[in-house]
Nucleic acid binder design. Structure first.
Lengths: 210, 210
DNA sequence: ATGGGAGTGTAACTTTTGTTACTGCATAGC
DNA sequence: GCTATGCAGTAACAAAAGTTACACTCCCAT
């Protein structure tokens, strides 16, 4: 695990901290599509991403979903940070988008390290900062953008995370994540296909150029 | 200033920290409607609210606005925290909603105190936490709620902040903050009036029961 | 091979929101 | 007093998004 730690977090943390993480952290490999954290759960472990990707979703009272953002290598979950320190319940759901490798850290260490290591403090604050910025872009897209633009952004974000030119999702799944209906997505995707930007197939979408 | 500090932050911070704040902080009184922080600005001072309220707005490329939330007594601005530590530009605009009293703290102290005072760390993390939660409620309202519900929430939030049963805003101003058009707001307000929930007047709205 | 379910395409329609245009009214400044 | 301006009310229409319905096709399981 130390090897993976050094590769992904070596430039951030000093050796002493890396060794502490190595001692208390638990390396976990989670396959795609697993719920790591659900809404209402208390959080006892904090994840550091090594590889793969996690999608973060919000849900309303009717069970309607909305995709917020993806976490990738080098990221951690600001929600988790928040919860650990405040002993609050999770407001979001986290699902592995790809097969994902992560290191789980007991939350007790959080406070200790925050006092002890400047690099850890910076990491925590940076995480908050980037998550806050991410939140702004989400708000921008739902407040200011129409569904066609949001769909484009969705497709772009998706290929950014998966590093493939194929998106393996049904129209229904996309509709859930953008909080709209399947028919609307089919309609807009068809327009994109007519513009030559994508190719529609059963269960997957081939990206030509966005 | 020390008096005001103790009243509003005494239960949070230890005496030593209160005295440090007292030494380096600058007490400022800002009247209603002043832009304290604007989008793209670098932030050199961090505000601690003593009284009054500040509204936080987001703007898109076309200059369209969206009200995010209000800061009140005991709050600070997570955006500022974020920026101070990351040396980044502000992504939001902050305008005094009421006459507001605040203590401005030079950002250099931020890091120092974060290392030195546990209570300060907790305060910073709590601020992040509550801002993050606030962001979720904003996302919820624009993603899941229709305009009539959003307007209701807006009116409720507003009287919560001002502690009055009268909202002194034109329909046009409300429309800006909810990012819609004046006609839409007039329409929905009229419906609320017909339901007996509000009374419409020129330049102000009287709240009967929400 | 066949029935059924899941995924997609599409039409027709409704609802919600946004736009344009015009009205009347209150008030401030003359 | 009169007028210009800003504010609010409302109608008529357009655009965007959501809904319902149904057809077709692929593919899996029996």
């Amino acid at each position: 695990m130390l090897q993976e730690l050094k590769e992904n977090y070596g430039y951030l943390f000093e050796d002493e901290l890396l060794h502490e993480i190595n001692q208390v952290g638990i390396l976990k490999e989670v396959e795609e599509g697993i719920i790591i954290i659900d809404i209402g759960q208390y959080i006892r472990l904090m994840p550091l991403l090594i590889s793969g990707a996690i999608k973060i979703l919000r849900e309303d009272n009717d069970g309607d979903e909305l995709l917020l953002y993806f976490l990738e290598k080098g990221d951690t979950c600001a929600m988790t940070l928040s919860c650990c320190l405040g002993d609050a319940k999770s407001e979001i759901r986290a699902i592995t988008e790809l097969d994902t490798k992560l290191i789980m850290i007991p939350i007790q260490k959080m406070e200790e390290w925050t006092a002890k290591y400047k690099s850890w403090r910076n990491f925590v604050f940076d995480s908050y900062h980037s998550r806050l910025l991410e939140m702004f872009t989400i708000i921008d897209s739902i407040a200011f953008m129409k569904m066609d633009e949001r769909l484009l952004k969705y497709l772009r974000d998706k290929i950014n995370v998966t590093k493939e030119d194929v998106i393996k999702n049904t129209h229904q799944e996309i509709a859930y994540e953008l909080h709209t209906s399947r028919v609307v997505i089919s309609r807009l995707l068809k327009t994109l296909e007519n513009q030559g930007k994508i190719e529609l197939h059963r269960n997957y979408i081939k990206i030509i150029s966005l």
